[in-house]
Nucleic acid binder design. Structure first.
Lengths: 212, 212
DNA sequence: ACCCAGTCTGAAACTTGTTCTAGATTAGCG
DNA sequence: CGCTAATCTAGAACAAGTTTCAGACTGGGT
């Protein structure tokens, strides 16, 4: 049920660059994402109400659902959007430390600071990401791949990462998401999140014994 | 808003052992948790519908809400219940390996196999756990402490764990939760979850250099 | 046995995510 | 330009979590 398109006749507007959206459609999509980010910044997950998003974006409710088939899809797409932005910023000023593990920790802490600037937005995006079920798995996967790319970029210019390194990166991602959640739900302090990130980043050192 | 009790006059039935529930109340609570587990086992998070839980438990909807102020509270309490059960089982047959890291990995894999037996139930509980907001933080914290205890138990009879070890345990918990989610949402295989668990458990070796 | 406060019940109401429908608008095409 | 299919809009309708309320019930103290 959840993995199939709901109707064989009505095709949804795809999120990827598959179908060439018209200019108006591209603009609509962008308005929707912007309205979502604004509402989320104000009041977090609960403040993103589909009717309000539609109204703020100047779009009918049905249209909103055509572009994003659920609130979760919408917020995951928002996260994708924001991550892309972050990735751009990071590219311009990459971390400086000599140690790959430290560079990754530095990068994640930079992302964490970005989240601290908009905690409500972070709340909405992260909650959606972890609450997503199979029907959103491809979109969540895209976000995950983006995150992986960011971490690998921070690790350094090394060629193809070893399977061991990929495992370490996955674990780092797990920790990153989960630590973020404990912070957002008020069960961990900012300091604790930093410690957790630094702790898990030690795993990288375990996988790069050929240190120069 | 979310952190305050809604009314100063009406006190809710507490989850902890604070107020001595009458026998009938204890029985009600148990019926509710059992009905929840059964519905969850059948169809996961979505199949746990408050009206159905109430009916299956032979309790009015309002009563259900008096015992558990939200669906999330209900499912987190269910997780607490199940974890307690697991803890009991683990106590009886502790892991055998000589290496603490391996013992922890073994323990988590045992818990993971339990989840594989009831994937829908696991889905409902884990989704609730990660979706929970501040209004549930104390209950989520209880679950977290229980999990920590289980991991520390597996690490061995060592006395007070060092702060470093506690960090490692927190990171292991993060990985455990997040890996579970990726498995439940179909984005990671069972094998991958095992690898992630084994990878993160190496952190324990980093914190116990005084190996005998 | 009687009474009070707190609890439970049944049912309706409200909120917000989601679906559906009928008609207006738009885009692409001959 | 005029046609056709796809898209968009406004609004109703539906589903499930949550709240509320009036009345019945229970337990403990007198």
């Amino acid at each position: 049920m959840t993995t199939e398109p709901k109707s064989p006749t009505a095709r949804a507007v795809p999120a990827g660059p598959s179908l060439p959206l018209t200019e108006r459609q591209e603009a609509r999509r962008r308005r929707i994402l912007q309205a979502t980010a604004e509402l989320a910044s104000r009041g977090g997950f609960d403040a993103v109400q589909m009717r309000e998003v539609a109204e703020a974006a100047g779009v009918a409710l049905g249209t909103l659902y055509r572009y994003f088939p659920s609130k979760i899809h919408l917020l995951v797409a928002t996260m994708q959007d924001q991550l892309q932005r972050l990735h751009g910023t990071l590219r311009k000023r990459p971390p400086t430390d000599a140690d790959p593990a430290a560079r990754v920790a530095q990068t994640l802490m930079r992302a964490f600071r970005a989240m601290q600037r908009e905690p409500h937005l972070a709340d909405a995006m992260v909650r959606a990401l972890t609450f997503a079920d199979r029907s959103v798995s491809s979109e969540v996967d895209t976000v995950s791949r983006l995150t992986t790319t960011i971490i690998l970029d921070a690790m350094g210019p090394a060629g193809p990462p070893t399977p061991e390194q990929l495992s370490a990166v996955r674990v780092i991602e797990h920790t990153w998401h989960s630590a973020l959640i404990t912070w957002l739900s008020g069960r961990a302090s900012i300091a604790q999140v930093r410690i957790d990130i630094e702790t898990v980043c030690r795993l990288i050192r375990l996988t790069t014994p050929q240190q120069a």
